[in-house]
Design a protein around this nucleic acid. Sequence first.
DNA 1: ACCTGAACACCGTTCAAGT
DNA 2: ACCTGAACACCGTTCAAGT
Lengths: 220, 220
Amino acid sequence: MQRAETPQRRGPRPMLSRDEIAAAALDLIDEGGVDALSMRVLAAQLGVATMAIYRYFATKDELLDAVTEAALPGVTMPRPHAPDWQKELGRIFTDLYRALERHPGLVRMRLEAVPKTPRALAWTEGVLSLLTSALFSREEAVGAYRSLYTYTFGFAAFATADARARANVRKRLSALPRETYPEIVGSAPELARTLGTAPQFEFGLRRLIAGLAITQPTTT
Amino acid sequence: MQRAETPQRRGPRPMLSRDEIAAAALDLIDEGGVDALSMRVLAAQLGVATMAIYRYFATKDELLDAVTEAALPGVTMPRPHAPDWQKELGRIFTDLYRALERHPGLVRMRLEAVPKTPRALAWTEGVLSLLTSALFSREEAVGAYRSLYTYTFGFAAFATADARARANVRKRLSALPRETYPEIVGSAPELARTLGTAPQFEFGLRRLIAGLAITQPTTT
DNA sequence: ACCTGAACACCGTTCAAGT
DNA sequence: ACCTGAACACCGTTCAAGT
């Protein structure tokens, strides 16, 4: 076997790489939200001219694809033959949610994007396999997948991770006239709390999975 | 009783109104998506200088609030004492989804916004009332509300109403290597179809409601 | 009171140029 | 091969001015 040649480059080595750029972009989004990422600001952050980035990414959209991948490194793969499929569904979607939760700005930016990286495809393949082998028809398996996916990304997009922002919501709701909105005013703490935390995500996830389990091969 | 004076204005009557501006903005969003609405383009559409709009809305964000209200005129109010609460939930959230479905660009733009108009608050009040009177604890009622709300807006944000766009998704998924992704390739038509239609929304909604119904006053 | 026009501080991206 | 700088066609919003 021949040893792969290390290419002997002449000129100076590149100042940038795709990974480095994507990581810096993710930092900007996490810190300042959707609007904090501009090609100009990103370039300045990297100490480089704006157009240098375009050597690595043809458009901002292509950059965001890379950022999305960088943001989800640790999501665990589904085990299609897990003994308890409901438990397995709970595990993998909770895991996905935990990863999304860390990057709310990105989730809002990329909501409509259908995943297309190999890892994302493998993940989808695994979930579908789990669902079809768990007594579902193909129709039902895909419907279940779409419901779970929608709920997870929807929750992540809505989530208000910042405790101070949640406190503001609570205050605003509590200040409403109690006679007109007794339920809202009475539930203001819960309404604010449910905007945020992973336990709240799991509340709905568990119930959705339970509902998927009971309405199975019914004929229409 | 004294007759209210009709104010005798001298100068020409205003060329614009809040409603007229909001309606034009909604048209732009519906036709061209999130990015199609700019203050400049909107003003041109109305045949007026850009800054004329700022006489009616202090910022673009304030304009979007008005647009959101204009977009949801026909959403039916919940009946808190409906005989069958599961059926009632299905009815009102399907109704909400149908309204959202018509304006996907707007949904994506305003995902994080917590409703604050009187009509939106009354709607929330009604749903909470329905849920608390239907055997739920306050905790559970609010958790159920949040789950349903998340699912509905999430689905609307993901929805690909355009049939041609769905056809593209199907084609892309079908073109994947069948050996590596048998489930995805085999389910490509269903995966594309579930991106779109109201029946698919109702598939998950029914199951979520069923799950909410069975996991009731469990301790813990 | 209502509308206009110029200006400021931003965008993403193209293009020609430098080394 | 990799980076730069100027330029183009856009943004939202401020400010001073017109009638």
